[in-house]
Design a protein around this nucleic acid. Structure first.
Lengths: 230, 230
DNA sequence: CGCTCGTTTGAGAGGTCTCAATTTGGGTGG
DNA sequence: CCACCCAAATTGAGACCTCTCAAACGAGCG
C-alpha cells in the first residue's frame, strides 16, 4: 500500500485516536484488492465476514426485494461500509458492487470485533461512525418520505454544486444509478430535469449548468436536517 | 419508580451487562415524568439534552420538512429514542410526542456521555443498540423505496398478526398515525385496506380480520431483510 | 340529542411506473 | 480516421399509484 493511502486510511473517522498497534494490526490483517467495475463485493443475506473500506474508485450499496432493486448509498474514498452488520455479527441488509475499477480493503470481521473489546478508543470511534451512519439513514428516509422526485434531485444538485464549488455540476456516475439512488426510474429522472428547467437547471449531458441558484433553492427547499452532511 | 419498572429498565438492551453503579446513577440522575397525550417531548433541530426512555404509554417520532410531516417510528415500553443525537452531542433530526398518556425517563445527555467513557460494558451495549437502530432505519428505507403503499400495509399486518398471535390484528393507534408511519395519507390507507380485501383482509373498525394468511403473504411478499425485527 | 373529530368515499389532478421507440454518445474494429 | 455498434439516455403514450379537496358517515362525549 502506498504511503499516501495509509495516511488517508489513518485519517478515517473510524480510526481516529486508536492505538497505533490496533491500526497496524487491522490494516495488516486486511486484504487490499483491486476489482474491475461491476463486481459484486457482498450479497444481501450473507453473513458479515469482512469490514470493507473503499480506498479508490466508487462502490454502490444497493438492496433488492420482490424483484425490484434500489441504490442505497454511494461510497467514495475513503469510506467504510456495512459496519453495523460486522459489529453485531449479522447478515448484510444491503449488497455492494463496484461502479468503477476500485481498490477495497477488507478487514476480517472477527478481527474488528476482537480489537473492539481491547481498544476503548476504537470502540469510541466506531460509536461515532455508527451514529453518523444512523443519522444519514434517517435523513435518507426523511428525504424519501417528505419530498417528490424532482425536489430530491434539486437538493442533490445543490449539495453537489456546493461540494464542487462551481456553477455547474459534473455527474460522475451513470444517470440510471443516480435515478435509483434518488428513488426513481431513469425515465423519471429525465423528466425531473425537465421539471427543473424553469428553475435554472440546464443539463448538457453529464454536466448540469445551474443558471439561477436562488430559483433552484426556492424550488428545492433545502433543509439541513435532511441535506446536511456530518 | 415501581420495582417492576426498574426490572424492565434493567432488561433494556441498552443496560445489558453494565455495572450496577452505572445503572443506578443513570436512573437516579434521570427524571421520570408522566405526560398527557399529545405533548411534544423534543423538537427537531434542538440540541440533544436528554436520552429518553419510554417506560409506559406510546411515543411517536416524527419529522417535518417543507410543510409536510411524517411519522418515523412508534416507540413502546421499554424503548429508547434519540440515542445517536445524545451520543454525538448534536441536534435532534426528529421530533417526539406522546400518543397516549405516557411515562418517560429522561437521563441528562451529559451523564450518559460521562458513563460511556467510564464503563466499557455500557459503551458496548450502546454500540449494540445503535447498530440495531441503524439497521432498522435501513429496513425502513428499503420498505419505502421498494414497495407500494398497499404492500407496506400488508407486511405491517403480517408482522402485527405474528406479534399478537391471532387471526386478527387490533390497531392500537389512530389510523392517521399508521398511515403517516407507512408513508401515505389517511385516505390512501383506507384505499389500501380496500385493495387488500381480495387478499383476505377484512377491517371492522380498529380490528382487522385476516381470513386468508396465505393469500395475504402471497400479495405482501414478506422479506426478513425488511420486516425482520432484531 | 347533537356536536366534534376521525374515518371513509368520491372526484379530479398530479406524480410515478411500464412499455416502446428514438436519439445520443462512447468504444471498437475495420 | 471513420463507420458501426451497443448501451445509455431521452421522449412518448397509457396505466397505475398517490395526493388534494370535498362531502358523507360514524363513534364517542358532553
Amino acid at each position: 500500500m502506498r504511503a499516501e493511502e495509509l495516511t488517508a486510511l489513518r485519517g478515517l473517522r473510524l480510526f481516529a485516536g486508536i492505538a497505533e498497534a490496533t491500526f497496524n494490526d487491522l490494516v495488516a490483517a486486511g486484504y487490499l484488492q483491486f476489482f474491475p467495475p461491476g463486481v459484486t463485493l457482498i450479497h444481501e443475506r450473507d453473513p458479515a465476514d469482512f469490514l470493507h473500506v473503499v480506498v479508490e474508485g466508487m462502490v454502490e450499496l444497493y438492496a433488492s426485494a420482490g424483484g425490484r432493486e434500489t441504490s442505497m448509498e454511494l461510497v467514495r474514498p475513503v469510506g467504510v461500509f456495512i459496519l453495523a452488520a460486522v459489529l453485531s455479527d449479522q447478515v448484510y441488509l444491503q449488497s455492494a458492487r463496484t461502479l468503477t475499477r476500485a481498490r477495497v480493503l477488507m478487514i476480517p470481521a472477527e478481527r474488528v470485533r476482537r480489537w473492539l473489546a481491547q481498544d476503548a478508543a476504537f470502540m469510541s470511534a466506531i460509536t461515532v461512525e455508527l451514529s453518523r451512519s444512523y443519522r444519514q439513514a434517517i435523513k435518507a428516509l426523511k428525504n424519501q418520505k417528505l419530498r417528490t422526485g424532482a425536489e430530491r434531485l434539486a437538493n442533490w444538485l445543490l449539495v453537489a454544486a456546493e461540494a464542487q464549488g462551481a456553477d455547474s455540476v459534473m455527474i460522475d456516475i451513470e444517470k440510471r444509478v443516480l435515478a435509483s439512488y434518488l428513488g426513481m426510474t431513469p425515465e423519471n429522472l429525465s423528466r425531473a430535469f425537465a421539471t427543473l428547467g424553469p428553475h435554472g437547471v440546464a443539463p448538457h449531458g453529464a454536466r448540469i449548468q445551474l443558471t439561477d441558484r436562488t430559483a433552484l433553492q426556492r424550488f428545492a427547499g433545502p433543509d439541513a436536517m435532511i441535506d446536511g452532511i456530518e
